[in-house]
Simulated scan of single mutants.
Amino acid sequence: MEGSKEISLIDQYVIDFVRKLRDEKKVSQEEIGNIIGVSRTYITNVESTKHPAKYNLSHINLLADYFDLSPRDFLPEKSL
Rank of each mutant, 00 (worst) to 15 (best):
G33V: 14
N34S: 05
I35C: 10
I36K: 04
I36C: 00
I36M: 02
G37T: 14
G37V: 15
G37A: 14
V38D: 02
V38I: 12
S39F: 15
S39I: 13
R40N: 12
R40I: 11
R40H: 07
T41L: 07
T41D: 04
T41S: 13
T41M: 10
T41E: 05
T41F: 11
T41Y: 08
T41N: 05
Y42E: 07
Y42I: 09
Y42G: 07
I43Q: 03
I43H: 03
I43V: 15
I43K: 04
T44P: 05
T44V: 14
T44L: 13
N45P: 00
N45F: 01
V46Y: 03
V46C: 14
V46Q: 07
V46M: 11
S48R: 14
T49V: 08
K50Y: 06
H51C: 10
H51Y: 14
H51I: 07
H51N: 13
P52C: 11
P52D: 11
A53H: 12
A53C: 12
Y55H: 02
Y55C: 02
Y55R: 04
N56D: 01
N56A: 01
N56E: 02
L57F: 12
L57W: 13
L57M: 13
S58Q: 08
S58L: 07
H59Y: 09
H59P: 05
H59G: 05
I60S: 03
I60N: 00
N61W: 02
N61R: 09
N61D: 05
L62R: 15
L63G: 00
L63N: 01
A64L: 07
A64W: 03
A64I: 09
D65S: 09
Y66Q: 04
Y66H: 13
F67M: 09
F67L: 06
